[in-house]
Design a protein around this nucleic acid. Structure first.
Lengths: 351, 351
DNA sequence: ATGAAAGCGCTAACAA
DNA sequence: TTGTTAGCGCTTTCAT
């Protein structure tokens, strides 16, 4: 290496015997430069292994193509799929993609969004359900306006816009419809006492699923008291714990609707540990259809939410028509994937 | 919003009635500024919702704290965990973390590394085994020198340095030891005909596991012919396909050592489909202990490779002592996690 | 076709 | 303590 530090366009220009202006033109290739000159510059750049300084370029050019996805955890299969979708769609367009993890902490979310503003991200995608309180509404309104005023876009994935007037767009799954569908699936298998395990009061995604669950129950002529919601939140461990406790307390149910597939993993485990079988004694359904759901014991019947498509859609929609996009609300469909975790209720326990 | 475009330090300075230099000093807080002035500036910045332009800052300050992890796929549980470790360790130090996915394509890897050079990343972490051919060696040598000459560091995670002289450091698991240990576990359960399914000739991680497998066999006094390696590569689908075929061809084995847990998922599935049981008829072990391995049917005995720790270690080591780090080679230990997928060979088939 | 020069937003000397 | 000035590396007028 000749000298410490990056090689600049100046060195390239010198070596090619031209000015930095000409070098710049040849390198970016938007201005007409004679082929011979151009070749000399390109050659020099290659010899020197020159790469442009993105900061300098962004400073003069007004930002760069960078998108940011913010998720709770990268290791959650669902979030990982969404992030992969965003990454893939961004990469397809030559955009850089930054992934941020918040661990569910609002402060870290705020810090990260601020950082993205500093970095000049032109697209910020916030993924995952949240509890929609005043703090949330204020936070998001702030993000939206701040981002918008510097020409960047905000996409809310699977979480609501606190106010339709806000310059943000929303892309999410129809949680209520999906939940209604699986609940109906359980009902038509003969189940009448179904518990929803994994509620998280205030969380928009879970509340919608609970609403769909209640709606399906009502549509089948069951009274409101037939609904039984255990608010244990999401995750394998909470699901396992809640199910273990529930089994100790009562057997007044024949099926479990888990808030998501990770909860379902915990539920299946708890049932197995209690010596019961699925679906022989208890039927179980999950939500999301994560990649390993078919490897559970038994393979899990669940609702497929095309997570990668959600991520891709977020980018696509945000970049499609910048003007009309604000305030738009897109719903992605879901469907049931039937595997082996649902059967008829055990004889004699149907009601 | 007053004007389109970002608020600059100039506007903050104006509003606070000071020069941009003073504003800068008050904002970054490294130079002494009287409390009163400082408060005025901070106030103005808050009122205007000012965020510094990271590009301008990086341009003058000589880069910024940014690390990049490059993985094959974000949705692979193992890679996701490594990425999470890197992200967490980077965030702890106030560094930004960028995640890139290559899909296993060398070209995309090169493009991404180049992009990171443009962006001024000070730390690039390449994760995952590779086939170590000439193209690979050349590529990595280039990354290493290019990054080094601009003061950035390269970390190879779970892949070898093509040449110890190269300015890169290596952090990886002791694949051979881990593989030897699980193989020994299988042997002491009585198995003698164990097939290794998921080889990928040339891939350093898999080759090391195969070597450990052969070593364990040899240590137990078995002849080299006792080794049976099926090179189907990694992933659930290849594992499923290869196992299905293998079962059609022969039953001359009582245990399967899957190249990783995803392969194991496919293997378990194939065995179940063929009407056989695990571990009654065939024992199975995996590698990596991904988060859902205990939810497989049956819960999988596997080798725990602390993936998140690998990611954290990569950052920690690279940032620890910049001078002595180059060329260093760190090995992280692994251990077996015993669950229910290993049993004694069926009576009469032990040998 | 090409060079000189201005300036993107910020920080760091250097003065005052 | 504070303001003035000079760049960081690049692109882009404006001349030539």
């Amino acid at each position: 290496m000749v000298s410490k530090g990056r090689v600049t366009i100046r060195e390239v220009a010198e070596r090619a015997g031209v000015s930095t202006a000409t070098a710049s033109r040849a390198l970016s290739g938007n201005h007409p430069v004679p082929a011979a000159t151009r070749a000399r510059v390109l050659r020099a750049a290659r010899d020197l292994d020159y790469v442009a300084n993105a900061h300098a370029r962004a400073l003069v050019g007004g930002g760069r193509k960078m998108a940011a996805v913010v998720v709770r955890q990268v290791t959650s299969p669902f979030y990982a799929q969404v992030a992969e979708g965003v990454e893939a769609e961004a990469a397809d367009r030559g955009w850089l993609c930054v992934v941020g993890a918040t661990g569910g902490d609002a402060q870290r979310e705020m810090d990260f969004v601020r950082l993205m503003r500093e970095e000049g991200a032109r697209l910020v995608i916030l993924v995952g359900g949240v509890v929609e309180d005043d703090a949330y509404r204020e936070r998001v309104a702030h993000y939206a306006h701040a981002l918008d005023s510097s020409g960047a876009r905000l996409v809310l994935c699977g979480r609501p816009a606190p106010d339709p007037e806000i310059p943000a767009l929303v892309v999410e799954f129809d949680n209520e419809a999906g939940a209604r569908a699986v609940t109906a699936h359980l009902l038509s298998a003969g189940h009448r006492r179904i518990v929803f395990l994994g509620g998280l009061p205030g969380n928009t995604a879970l509340d919608a699923r609970v609403a769909g669950y209640r709606a399906a129950l009502a549509e089948h002529g069951l009274p409101p008291e037939a609904a039984h919601v255990v608010d244990c939140g999401l995750g394998r461990a909470p699901g396992h714990r809640a199910m273990t406790e529930l089994l100790k307390r009562t057997r007044e149910f024949t099926a479990v609707f888990a808030g998501d597939d990770m909860v379902a993993a915990g539920v299946l485990r708890a049932i197995a540990e209690s010596g019961l079988s699925v679906p022989g004694d208890i039927s179980v359904v999950g939500y999301n259809d994560i990649p390993l759901a078919e490897d559970f014991n038994p393979p899990l019947t669940t609702v497929r939410t095309p997570a990668e498509e959600l991520g891709r859609a977020a980018v696509r929609i945000a970049l499609r028509d910048p003007e009309h996009a604000a305030g738009a609300h897109h719903l992605l469909g879901t469907h049931i994937v039937v595997r082996d975790s649902v059967g008829a209720p055990p004889p004699g326990r149907a009601l």
